[in-house]
Simulated assay, not measured.
Amino acid sequence: MSNKVYNVLFLCTANSARSVMSEGWLNMLGKGRFKAFSAGSHPSGQVNPYAITLLNEIGYDTSALRSKSWEEFEAADAPHMDIVITVCDNAKGELCPIWPGHPLTAHWGYEDPHGETEEEKQASFRKVFLQIKQRVLLLASLPDEKLASLALKDVVRDIGESKLD
């Protein structure tokens, strides 16, 4: 069993919901094999309260969560990323920085959670939250030999293309 911890950066434009929820799920389900982070190309400055509520429900400590720029992860003293995953179509199409070490990159697209009424917003956020969980579980369940091999690139991309309920 490998002792390597894989650093994963989830990117979305605003870094307010999908990327933050992805960070929380992977930190909860990654069994110490992953350390997840999130950032945005144009951070909103605040984490969406629906995302905070859902993460609190699974027991994730949200006290340190904040909406931040991906520029924080370009700094020389930033953690080295092994995997960078975009989670919204806007971020997928943006010109991303050249990350030190040339980490594996993939796109796991999710619809932008929304709704007219309170009930619709809650349902939309919960749906995306559970979709994120499905993909994170697939990543977290990969055996060490898959994570250590170059096949990881294809596996992570395949997870992003998987059908969601």
Rank of each mutant, 00 (worst) to 15 (best):
S141F: 07
R157V: 03
E72N: 15
M21C: 13
M1A: 13
A36G: 11
Q122S: 05
G45L: 08
R135E: 05
G32I: 08
Q134I: 01
C96A: 14
L142K: 13
M81D: 03
I83C: 02
N15D: 07
Y110A: 09
T117F: 01
K153G: 15
S19R: 01
C88K: 01
I52L: 14
P143I: 11
N48G: 06
I85V: 08
Y110L: 13
G109A: 10
A51Q: 01
S67N: 03
G32E: 07
A140D: 08
P43D: 09
D82P: 04
M1G: 13
D144L: 07
G30D: 09
W25D: 00
L11I: 14
D77T: 11
R126P: 03
G115E: 12
W99G: 00
D61V: 01
K146H: 12
E23Y: 06
D154E: 15
K133V: 02
N27G: 11
I159S: 03
L130N: 11
A17R: 03
H80F: 08
S44R: 12
L152M: 10
M81N: 05
A91Q: 04
L55N: 02
C96N: 12
W108V: 06
M1L: 09
L138S: 14
K4C: 12
E72Q: 15
R18M: 01
A17Y: 03
S162F: 11
E161F: 11
G30W: 06
E94P: 01
S67W: 00
W108G: 05
Y60L: 06
A148E: 15
D112C: 07
E94T: 12
G32P: 05
M28S: 11
P79D: 08
S141R: 13
I85L: 01
N7V: 06
G30Y: 06
A14S: 09
E71V: 07
D165A: 14
S141W: 06
L142R: 11
A36F: 06
I132L: 04
K133D: 04
V155Y: 13
H114D: 12
D112M: 06
G101L: 10
S38F: 02
D165E: 14
D154F: 11
D77F: 06
Q122W: 04
V8P: 03
C12P: 00
